[in-house]
Each structure stands twice: as C-alpha cells, then as structure tokens.
Design a protein around this nucleic acid. Structure first.
Length: 236
DNA sequence: AATTAGCGCAACCGCACGTGT
DNA sequence: GACACGTGCGGTTGCGCTAAT
C-alpha cells in the first residue's frame, strides 16, 4: 500500500500550537510523545513536541538571565562533568540542558578563552579562587547523578545557591507566573495580538495549570482520544 | 539612517540508550 | 536474543534582536 506522508511542521511554535500541546500533555502526561503529537492534532513530531515542552512550556521553568550563583554552579559542574548538560541542568532547578548549553556556549566559553589568554602563573583571578574553593567542596556523586554520603558539601553549595536565587522553589516560581500582574512567559506570549496574547497568557497561567481547560478551545470526543479545536489550527 | 557584526535562544538532527514484545 | 519503538542527550544551525560603526 502507498502511504501518503504528510509533511511535518517545523520551525517556531505558535501560541495556538503551544496551547494544543499544553492541553494534551496535561491530559495524557509527559509520556508517549508520538501519541501526544498525534492526539493533539499538531502536525509535529513527537520529538518536536517533547522538546517544546521540556525547554519552554514545562511549568517551573525559569526564564531570564542566569544569576551569578547559577553561573558559578555551571562552571563548577562543567569542570566536573564536562558537557553533560542534562546532568548539570538537574542541579539547576528551573533551567534546561538546552538553556545551560546555550549559556555556556555564549558566555562561559568566551570567558574561558579570555581566562586562558590571561592566564599566567602569577595571575590568579578572583573567579578562579572562587572556583577552586568550590572544587574543594565537591562531593562524591554517583554515576546516576545522585548525591550520596559525601553530599553535604555540595548540599551546602546548592543551598547557598538556592538562597541566593532569592529562595525560589518551584512552587514559588510557578505562583509568580500565575500572578495576574506577572509578565507573561517571555517571547511567544508577547505577540502583537494583545487580546490573543492576554487570553493565552491567562489561560496558561491561571486556568490551564490549575485544574481545567477552557472548553472554548478544546473538546474531547467520546473516546477521549482525540482533541477537537473549534478552529482547526492545522488547516491554515 | 543604513549596514554590519555579535549575541542569545529556539529548534532540529543524529545517535545512543532503555524498554517492551 | 533480536527487533521495534520511544525517549534522552549533545551538537549544531538558523533566525531575530541589538549594539556598534
């Protein structure tokens, strides 16, 4: 038989696509991305959906500049683990491997180069001093990335880092996102269509993440296996 | 004001690994 | 054990924005 393969959408995500994905993930969980991709009606690959969720839509993600503490932690962990971005990301709540990777690429590599050129036996920068002090405090971490017995030092480092991050637990981050006066998630929610973006923002913040989804946007059909949008997004 | 260079970031790709059949 | 499928990871690319010229 001949399968007619529909071309998958690529490139930047639209607000509508984000909404579709968020709804579907909330309904079916963060698993079976191919299934989610199909069920959502998005003409995207599961991989693409997962990436969008993990790197942008996942609740609790922090957006914005890295704090100095986070920066130091990245230096520290990178010195230890190299380019194991996902591993490093696990130590930085709210940050994704992609974000850290990008950050490192732009900021840290540059700094490292500068440092290398500056580096002479006599020159010891403050950052180096700081780094070495951190290295002293490095705990033993098992290959699965979990902190074990000797983790107290790292725990201290992490704790101070966390404190320095203005004590931002995930809940609080999310609460702030939910706050009406809080800015929308950056980027896509700052679209030109103000009504649209406001609505989107509200849906994503208060309504969406809490309990229910606006039936205005989505309905589940009888089997609960397919989502129907009043305005099909993929027939643009 | 127009152009250029650099930066930041979202997203894609290919590969590796894990899990179920 | 072999295979297929789903997921995770690291590297890379491309585009938009902004500062510099």
């Amino acid at each position: 038989m001949v399968m007619v393969r529909e071309e998958m959408r690529k490139g930047p995500w639209t607000e509508q696509e984000d909404l579709q994905l968020v709804c579907t993930v909330r309904l079916f969980g963060e698993r079976r991305w191919d299934f989610i991709a199909k069920v959502s009606g998005l003409n995207r690959t599961g991989k693409s959906c997962r990436l969008r969720w993990v790197n942008y839509l996942h609740p609790g993600l922090k957006h914005g500049r890295m704090s100095p503490q986070e920066e130091h932690l990245i230096i520290e962990l990178h010195a230890r683990w190299g380019n194991r971005w996902s591993r490093i990301a696990r130590r930085l709540p709210g940050r994704t491997d992609n974000e850290i990777k990008n950050y490192w690429r732009t900021h840290m590599r540059k700094k490292a180069q500068e440092r290398r050129t500056d580096m002479s036996p006599s020159s010891s920068s403050s950052s180096l001093t700081y780094q070495s002090s951190l290295l002293d405090a490095v705990p033993i971490i098992t290959t699965d990335g979990d902190i074990h017995d000797d983790s107290r030092c790292m725990a201290r480092v992490l704790k101070s880092t966390q404190n320095a991050m203005d004590g931002y637990p995930m809940d609080q981050i999310w609460r702030e996102i939910e706050a009406p006066e809080a800015p929308c998630l950056p980027g896509i929610y700052e679209g030109e269509d103000k009504i649209g973006s406001n609505l989107t923002c509200q849906l994503l913040t208060s309504t969406m993440w809490n309990y229910s989804y606006p039936e205005v946007f989505w309905k589940i059909d009888n089997e609960g296996t397919r989502m129907l949008a009043p305005q099909s997004s993929h027939d643009k």
